[in-house]
């Protein structure tokens, strides 16, 4: 067993894990963060995309122990005080999801994309979400949602996580 200390959606955790445990399994099975989904076994689909230390990662290709000391944000941690993140709102308004299985990863990747490029054109959005597969939407409304969110987030909106707090059972 190896120990991992990690902040997830603003909460500190310390757990013993098997060294081979993937971050996505740790999030889902140990922390109950089942909003982050698993869609493949070759890190192609991106359904499991989360942010690790501010960067989007496919949490199926990161070991839980690699997140030790880090800060993870999942789809469950981006709304603030009941208010949705602008990218979440845009996905709803633009009908950028159908079955919703790719959506958590797609939203997390879109937030990362907008962090790098606050005003992407269509081509840049398509390239930026290329690592996240969707079978329902044909991507058109996802592109529209990302561009719509970009407009809403101007200027200065950010997707930083809240300051970590400790909870019982955490540490």
């Amino acid at each position: 067993m190896a120990q991992v200390r990690v902040t997830v959606d603003g909460v500190n955790y310390a757990d013993d894990v098997e060294p081979r445990t993937l971050l996505v399994h740790y999030l889902r099975e140990r922390l109950g963060k089942t909003g982050t989904l698993i869609g493949c076994d070759t890190s192609n689909c991106g359904a499991c995309t989360v942010h690790l230390n501010g960067q989007s990662v496919k949490s199926c290709s990161v070991l839980a122990v690699q997140a030790d000391g880090g800060e993870v944000t999942t789809i469950e941690g981006i709304a603030r005080d009941g208010k949705l993140h602008p990218v979440q709102e845009a996905f709803n308004e633009c009908h950028a999801l159908q079955c919703g299985f790719c959506t958590p990863g797609m939203i997390m990747q879109s937030i990362d994309l907008l962090g790098d490029n606050p005003d992407p054109d269509e081509h840049e959005v398509r390239e930026g979400i290329e690592g996240n597969l969707c079978r329902c939407t044909g991507y058109q409304n996802i592109v529209r949602a990302v561009q719509s969110a970009a407009q809403k987030m101007k200027p200065g909106a950010s997707a930083d996580t809240q300051a970590p707090v400790s909870v019982a059972g955490g540490e």
Binding site: G35, E76, F91
Partner: peptide, 19 residues
């Protein structure tokens, strides 16, 4: 209409069978 079902799907408040 924007979809009702999105509220849970965009926040991770979902219940797929694997959960």
């Amino acid at each position: 209409r924007a979809r009702k079902e999105d509220a849970r799907l965009i926040t991770g408040r979902t219940r797929f069978t694997d959960a």
